[in-house]
Design a protein around this nucleic acid. Structure first.
Length: 276
DNA sequence: GTGCCTGTTACCTC
DNA sequence: AGAGGTAACAGGCA
């Protein structure tokens, strides 16, 4: 669920809330497998008394820059951070907890336990595998077009693959393809220059809008996205096709269809996004 | 209760 | 290189 706009919103809120400059007094781990590369004991030992120097985003990863290491958190489907003023009993889906020196606690909850924490001293090889940042100048039209060159693949699974463009997930891919009027199963090699251009612009548009709307919250259960302070996003109201099957396309009024592409639920307007 | 669905990704085989 | 299947896991929903 958390894609680039949701992760960006979380990172921005963490900064606003004053996490930068604070000290992590100690960590507590309730579910070992939330830690990707360390045993809980070693993780807690390394985390104790670390200062948070900076917080940033790379693709869907939250990056905490600490004293002598970096902490990467991937929220996957249901991971979330919740900042609270005082310590309290662990919650049902709480997997990790950070006790801050000022008495606040940062809880990490993850209903489905797919999220992962990586504590790394050298993150270069880890970061190398991540694709272009779509909201930076790195994501030029030329760079995007270059990624597709010589590849034979359906456009939707290509856009979901984080090693090419980082940060897109099922929601924003469906939205971008609709905006560019491209069917999700079209092969990369079949896309015209005009279509590629429209897609490049659409990717930037849907992500920027998502960030401006502080992310997409589709429901009210704990499986949904909420910010660090518990606020839902508002971008669900701006979605054109995602989870809108049966409803009229905002462009042509044809009913939106739900199909399966690369084993993923996929939303298309059969009239605007023709396969040819 | 049963069975199917879900916003992500890694890993396997073909 | 890429497609397809499976797995990790919990809960919502018909």
């Amino acid at each position: 669920m958390p894609e680039l706009p949701e992760v960006e919103t979380i990172v921005q809120e963490m900064r606003e809330i004053g996490l930068i400059g604070s000290t992590i007094e100690r960590a507590e781990v309730f579910w070992q497998r939330s830690l990707a590369n360390l045993a809980a004991h070693d993780f807690c030992q390394q985390m104790a008394n670390q200062h948070i120097h900076h917080i940033r985003r790379r693709g869907k990863l939250i990056v905490f820059c600490l004293d002598n290491c970096e902490l990467f958190v991937h929220l996957r489907m249901t991971g979330k951070f919740i900042l609270e003023a005082h310590a309290s009993l662990p919650r049902k889906h709480e997997r990790v907890r950070l006790y801050l020196a000022d008495g606040r606690i940062l809880r990490y909850e993850d209903q489905r336990k797919f999220g992962k924490w990586y504590l790394l001293k050298d993150s270069l090889s880890f970061l190398k595998k991540i694709g272009l940042e779509p909201l930076t100048p790195d994501f030029s039209f030329a760079a995007f077009a270059q990624l597709l060159k010589g590849r034979k693949r359906q456009i939707k699974p290509f856009l979901l693959d984080q090693q090419f463009v980082a940060g897109l997930g099922n929601i924003y891919v469906d939205e971008a393809l609709w905006e560019a009027k491209i069917h999700p199963t079209r092969d990369l090699s079949s896309l015209t220059a005009d279509e590629l251009n429209a897609l490049h612009t659409a990717i930037i548009n849907v992500l920027q809008r998502g960030v401006a709307n502080t992310g997409t919250t589709l429901g009210s259960t704990s499986a949904n996205y909420f910010s660090v302070s518990g606020r839902p996003g508002t971008n669900q109201h701006a979605l054109k096709v995602f989870r809108r099957h049966g409803q009229p396309c905002p462009r042509c009024s044809c009913p939106i269809e739900k199909i399966t592409v690369a084993q993923r639920g996929t939303h298309v307007c059969p009239s605007c996004q023709k396969l040819r």
